[in-house]
Design a protein around this nucleic acid. Structure first.
Lengths: 344, 344
DNA sequence: TTGAAAGCGCTAACAA
DNA sequence: TTGTTAGCGCTTTCAA
């Protein structure tokens, strides 16, 4: 057998093993495996052959310790199920795929304490950069981020002061834009439906912008309904029924995400309600997933993929020391999509 | 200032810094920070205070190298957007949260070569275990997995021979079960709609089991339609229209996933087709997300969360050396959900 | 183009 | 309960 396939306690292979098998010094083996420095074609071949036969897998732990370089980017986001963060990840991967960097994801479930511990955990691996959702963090988390000498990009929100770089939309502005579109379309009795998430700062800011701009138009949110847990589509239906029973005069429903908006839409269609004539509807996120519903829900695209791309670009370029003309505060513009549930 | 807040090139803090700041040896500082061994309350307090003031974050790279232990579990799956893998992750996290282990995710996009490189990459960090989707891998990947001395759990499929442990359902059986239910309900003209994914072995096996069991009932798949890319809901609609125009006699449509099934359902309802009277429909996955549609789609639950839980349990217990009565081949039973689109 | 020596920051093992 | 010593497996640096 090529290698002692029956070693009782398999010891992972080391550079030394490859060195011995190939008759080349450890140092030169290392050079070959990393494509560094000049190595003659002959030795290169010997080394690669030996490494392959043995099945050598380099130990990045040792490599990272020695070189003080770790090609990992910590990406810290609230959740994956959301339909919003997978898109962000797509943008990030797209850019990092052209660099030596790799994203590593940590989830916070919208809990500040969890965010803090996840951040601590990830920083202990000494990543080359951090991409983190939101501008709100615990004091300790903020201190860690400030204390670290790597690029830190806060994403998905620009309403606040970043620690370092920041990429995203203004949720206040997104809320305002929606309010203006609603007012302009002539709707007058507005209801709001959202999640029970005091810690979702972006939803909160959107709501604040929304009410503020409504007020300027002499309008207000006349009723509200909140949910937590369960299937969002179902909850959207239920909340819509509840709010419309309680406030039958409402002629517009603004949902804090597309999924509950879709549930609301299905409910209205079931009930034979004329959308957007009798009641207008709008969600938030621009979730592509929902195209194909009986009607296209009005929504607002938050530029998630672009956010991921930009953030990754900032990290990649800063980590590479290339800071020429690098914009580190990028405000993207939310894009209103009227769909078929909002009169224009 | 407590620490030179203006160090020009911030050097990350080391144990030594904490040691000096607290007047306690590095070793004892290390013990305090890891809660290992006996340390007097007094020194513990001193050390923790110093660590906190300095803002020390341990270097896991050095720790891992010294201790030869890495509390990471590599989780290698095709994609996140799928709605199926987030559930698996939920199950995994649930279990690992009660252990020192942490999942780290790598994505393959259903590409064997990508799987191989991601695996290589992750193994180079010397994780404590591997959870990987599917039983089909490149030869090199298989060799790596076999060559490694840590628990390896292949998940989501049990139709084949695992390298080490395996947890999941039999997709052949799932296909057969659906075929039997369809035949029993009296449907006779079956159409199949799926993805253009020759590399999705689980979908393939499902289809094989499906046709095989249909054949036993004297039935066959009379028409098929495939898609790639785009919004699954839209594609489901389009494919359904196409296949029904081409084969108007079909009275049952089996979709390879719930999302296109939902699109098909919406299409049929639009067209005033009587579901499940005139045409029956079924998808696959048991996606909770879709509850709330006008009709509940028949589907088959693949036990995704449970799969994640079991896999994580195997890794956790094997990594801890606790192998008492540990089942390393777990076949879960797919659960047929009739919903409202399949006569019983 | 190749090799030898030193050390990255931490922990295991042992000694006091 | 605390400290000392010797690496972990690699890469950096310098010399040949």
């Amino acid at each position: 057998m090529t290698r002692g396939s029956q070693d009782q306690a398999k010891r992972p292979l080391t550079l030394r093993d490859v060195s011995e098998a190939s008759g080349v010094s450890e140092m030169t083996v290392s050079r070959v495996l990393r494509n560094r420095g000049d190595v003659s074609a002959a030795t290169r071949k010997k080394v690669l052959a030996a490494a392959k036969t043995l099945g050598y897998v380099p130990n990045k732990i040792a490599g990272a310790l020695a070189s003080q370089r770790v090609n990992l980017v910590a990406v810290i986001i609230p959740s994956m199920s959301n339909m919003v963060f997978p898109d962000v990840m797509t943008g990030i991967s797209e850019v990092l795929d052209n660099t030596p960097l790799q994203p590593v994801v940590g989830l916070t479930n919208y809990l500040p304490e969890k965010e803090e511990s996840v951040l601590y955990e990830m920083l202990s691996w000494r990543p080359s950069g951090v991409i983190i959702a939101g501008l709100e963090h615990t004091d300790a988390a903020r201190a860690m981020l400030r204390g670290v000498d790597i690029p830190v990009v806060e994403i998905m929100d620009v309403d606040g002061t970043p620690i370092d770089a920041m990429v995203g939309i203004s949720h206040r502005r997104a809320g305002r834009m929606m309010a203006q579109a609603i007012a302009k379309a002539g709707y007058e009795h507005i209801g709001f439906l959202g999640t029970k998430m005091p810690l979702d700062h972006r939803a909160r800011k959107r709501f604040e912008g929304f009410t503020e701009a409504l007020a300027k138009e002499g309008l207000e949110v006349e009723d509200q309904e909140f949910y937590e847990g369960g299937s969002a589509l179902v909850k959207g239906r239920e909340m819509t029924e509840t709010i419309l029973n309680r406030s039958p005069d409402l002629d517009f429903l603004y949902y804090s995400n597309d999924m509950i908006g879709a549930g609301g839409l299905l409910y209205c269609l079931d009930k034979g309600i004329d959308v957007p004539g009798q009641i207008g509807l709008a969600g938030f996120n621009g979730v592509e997933l929902l195209q194909g519903l009986p009607k296209l829900l009005a929504t607002m695209d938050a530029g998630r993929i672009e956010t991921g791309r930009k953030a990754a670009e900032i990290v990649a370029r800063m980590a590479a020391g290339d800071v020429e003309g690098l914009q580190t505060r990028v405000e993207l513009t939310p894009k209103l999509q009227y769909g078929e549930t909002l009169r224009r």
